Computed example of a mutant assay.
Amino acid sequence: MALTDARRHVLQRRIRIIVGATIGYNVIEAVIAISAGAAASSSALIGFGLDSTIEVLSAAAVAWQFTRREPDRWEKPTLRVIALAFFALAAYVGVASVSSLIGGHAAEHSTVGIALAAVSAVVMPFLSFAERRAGLALGSATAVADSRQTLICAYLSVAVLLGLVLNSTLGWWWADAVAGLAIAAFAVREGIEAWRGDTCATSVGMLLEDDGDH
C-alpha cells in the first residue's frame, strides 16, 4: 500500500527523532565507558565506548540522509557508511578480544561499567525496535540497517555486562572476549548485507508487500 505524503513526512520525522535520541545517548555512553574503562584498565569497557562512537557515526549518517530534500536518492551512499561502521566495529572488537585472550588480561572491578552496560542493555533494544519499525513502514533500507547497528550495540552491552560480572564474581576474565568474537562475526555479516544495499532494500520491499497483502 502506497504511503501518503503526510504519512511519509510523519515517519521521516519519527526516524529523525529516534536517531537523534540514539546519538545523544551514545555520546554520553562513550564518555562514561571510556573513562570507566581507563580507570579499571578494562579493554572491554574501552571497546564498548569506542563502539558507541561508531554507533554515533551510523546514526548521524541516517540523520543526515533524512534532512535531504529527497532522502531516497541518498540511500545507497548512506548504506555504505553504515556498512563501513559495521566493519570497523567488527575489526576493533575482534582484535581487542583476541588480544585479551592471548594476553590473559583481567580488568579491575568497575561498578560504573556494570551499571552502564545494564542500562544500555535495556535502552538499545528499545531504540532499535522503534527505528526498525519506522524504517519498515517507510521502506527505508538505511533506517533498518542502522537499527541493526543499534541492536549489535545492545548485544555488546550484554556481553560487556556478563564479562564484567563474571570477571568480578568468578574470575572468568575470558568471558567477555569470547562473546566479543561472536559479536564481531555477526557485525561482519550485517556489514556485508548493508554494503550490498540492493539486497537490503529488496528485503524491505518484500516485507512491505507481504504486510499489504494481509
Score class of each variant (00 low, 15 high):
residue 200 C to Y: 03
residue 160 V to E: 02
residue 168 S to E: 15
residue 143 A to N: 01
residue 36 A to S: 14
residue 207 L to Q: 15
residue 188 V to N: 08
residue 138 L to N: 00
residue 186 F to A: 12
residue 184 A to C: 10
residue 99 S to E: 10
residue 45 L to N: 00
residue 9 H to A: 13
residue 87 F to H: 02
residue 208 L to T: 00
residue 86 F to L: 03
residue 130 A to L: 12
residue 45 L to T: 00
residue 129 F to K: 00
residue 50 L to Y: 14
residue 38 A to N: 09
residue 33 A to T: 02
residue 65 Q to L: 08
residue 119 V to I: 14
residue 40 A to R: 10
residue 86 F to P: 01
residue 25 Y to H: 02
residue 207 L to I: 09
residue 32 I to E: 04
residue 204 V to M: 04
residue 141 A to R: 03
residue 142 T to A: 15
residue 208 L to D: 00
residue 17 I to L: 07
residue 172 W to H: 02
residue 169 T to M: 14
residue 77 P to M: 01
residue 148 R to T: 01
residue 147 S to N: 12
residue 183 I to A: 07
residue 101 L to R: 07
residue 11 L to F: 04
residue 171 G to S: 09
residue 180 G to W: 02
residue 195 W to D: 01
residue 189 R to E: 08
residue 8 R to M: 05
residue 13 R to D: 13
residue 178 V to W: 01
residue 120 S to A: 15
residue 113 G to L: 14
residue 21 A to G: 04
residue 32 I to F: 06
residue 20 G to C: 10
residue 197 G to S: 05
residue 24 G to R: 03
residue 96 A to W: 04
residue 13 R to Y: 02
residue 189 R to G: 11
residue 163 G to T: 10
residue 4 T to M: 08
residue 73 R to Y: 06
residue 47 G to N: 13
residue 118 A to W: 10
residue 59 A to P: 04
residue 50 L to K: 05
residue 44 A to W: 04
residue 6 A to H: 09
residue 65 Q to F: 03
residue 52 S to F: 03
residue 73 R to Q: 15
residue 124 M to S: 00
residue 23 I to F: 10
residue 154 A to V: 04
residue 214 H to T: 09
residue 101 L to N: 11
residue 69 R to H: 09
residue 120 S to D: 01
residue 14 R to Q: 06
residue 146 D to Y: 07
residue 211 D to Q: 11
residue 69 R to S: 14
residue 22 T to F: 05
residue 123 V to M: 07
residue 68 R to Y: 02
residue 12 Q to I: 11
residue 27 V to L: 15
residue 170 L to N: 06
residue 117 A to Q: 07
residue 201 A to K: 08
residue 173 W to T: 02
residue 134 A to F: 13
residue 73 R to W: 04
residue 10 V to L: 08
residue 157 S to G: 14
residue 158 V to G: 06
residue 50 L to W: 15
residue 122 V to W: 01
residue 1 M to R: 11
residue 79 L to W: 10
residue 154 A to M: 11
residue 195 W to S: 00
residue 154 A to K: 03
residue 137 A to L: 13
residue 139 G to V: 07
residue 48 F to Q: 14
residue 158 V to H: 06
residue 90 A to P: 06
residue 47 G to Q: 12
residue 63 A to I: 06
residue 36 A to M: 05
residue 42 S to C: 12
residue 124 M to V: 02
residue 17 I to D: 01
residue 27 V to K: 03
residue 4 T to C: 05
residue 115 A to W: 10
residue 167 N to W: 06
residue 204 V to A: 07
residue 121 A to I: 11
residue 77 P to W: 08
residue 4 T to N: 05
residue 152 I to T: 04
residue 135 G to W: 05
residue 182 A to E: 05
residue 206 M to A: 11
residue 113 G to H: 12
residue 43 S to K: 04
residue 131 E to S: 11
residue 20 G to E: 06
residue 178 V to C: 09
residue 19 V to K: 00
residue 75 E to P: 07
residue 180 G to L: 08
residue 28 I to T: 02
residue 1 M to Q: 09
residue 211 D to V: 14
residue 77 P to S: 01
residue 13 R to P: 01
residue 21 A to Y: 10
residue 14 R to D: 10
residue 193 E to Y: 05
residue 111 T to P: 00
residue 79 L to K: 04
residue 89 L to K: 15
